[in-house]
Computed example of a mutant assay.
Amino acid sequence: MSVLDGKPGPVDPPRECPACPRLVEFREELRAVHPDWHNAPVPSFGAENPRLLVVGLAPGMKGANRSGRPFTGDYAGHLLYQTMLDYGFAEGTYEARPDDGLVLKDAMITNAVRCLPPQNKPTGEEIRTCRPFLLATLAANPSITAVLALGRIAHETFLTALELRRAEFPFAHGAKHDLPGYDLSLFDSYHCSRYNTNTGRLTQEMFTSVFDKIRRHLS
């Protein structure tokens, strides 16, 4: 029996999720300063019956935490959504706002931790507390066969959620891991953050090469 067996629970936390006191406190501070922002757990965004799941670590302050849609409003979203458009995983125009009309095709985007953490760094306990929503998202979408982890921490968090030994599946940009016991292949990429692209750690060509592999896998 895998951790995905059984009836899945809710796939997204409630808007006033009380589970992580530090994140709740940070949320309330930001609501006082930016009352027009989303400032709440960010739900997954995607198509029905997706085959690709993109997993980030947590919402960005001026991205998903402001807009309410994963990777929407910050630099990482520009690179991610344009690449998904180029590879047929999205259609429309990405304009960095949740009402831009962009829709995903055969894909879903989520975060391992649904609330914004201070300094963009969730604690291990916060990651564990939010794990049921990641597992419920997988269980509710059995069509998923490919998972793209954006960054090492998202990669390791995903493996731990499935109770797989991280040492057996080391993170490496461009790597593909077939996960035993699951009809899933895990693909790795450096995170598409401005820092990684500005420093040359991740180039557009490196990012698209990962999507090349994903598209071939799904085909």
Score class of each variant (00 low, 15 high):
D5A: 15
D5I: 01
G6P: 11
P10E: 14
V11C: 10
P13C: 14
P14R: 14
E16I: 08
P18L: 09
P18E: 15
P21G: 09
P21N: 09
L23P: 03
E28T: 03
L30V: 04
A32W: 07
V33L: 13
H34Y: 15
W37E: 01
H38M: 06
A40S: 15
P43K: 11
G46C: 05
G46T: 06
A47G: 15
R51E: 12
L52Q: 00
L52G: 10
L53C: 12
V54N: 08
V54A: 02
V54T: 12
V55G: 02
V55T: 10
G56K: 05
G56N: 03
M61T: 00
K62A: 06
G63K: 02
G63W: 01
G63I: 03
A64Y: 01
A64P: 03
N65Q: 03
R69I: 04
R69N: 02
P70C: 06
Y75V: 10
G77I: 04
H78E: 14
T83Y: 08
L85Y: 04
L85N: 02
D86K: 15
D86V: 04
F89A: 10
F89W: 09
A90V: 01
E91Q: 11
T93S: 07
T93G: 01
Y94K: 09
Y94T: 07
E95H: 00
E95Q: 15
A96M: 11
A96I: 02
A96N: 08
R97A: 09
D99K: 11
D100M: 03
L102G: 07
L104F: 06
K105E: 05
A107C: 12
N111H: 07
V113M: 10
V113H: 06
R114C: 02
C115D: 13
E125T: 11
E125L: 07
E125K: 13
I127F: 08
T129W: 10
C130E: 15
R131I: 02
L135T: 06
A136P: 11
T137E: 13
T137D: 10
L138P: 00
P142W: 11
P142Q: 14
I144V: 13
V147H: 05
V147Q: 11
L148Y: 03
G151L: 03
R152T: 07
I153H: 06
A154E: 04
H155G: 03
T157N: 14
F158L: 13
A161N: 06
E163G: 00
E163C: 12
L164H: 09
E168C: 10
F169W: 04
F171N: 00
F171E: 09
H173F: 05
H173R: 03
A175K: 09
H177S: 06
D178M: 02
L179D: 08
G181E: 11
Y182N: 04
D183F: 07
S185H: 03
L186W: 02
F187H: 04
Y190F: 14
Y195K: 11
Y195V: 11
Y195W: 14
T199D: 06
G200Q: 12
R201K: 14
E205L: 05
M206S: 08
F207R: 10
V210H: 01
K213V: 02
R215W: 13
S219C: 07
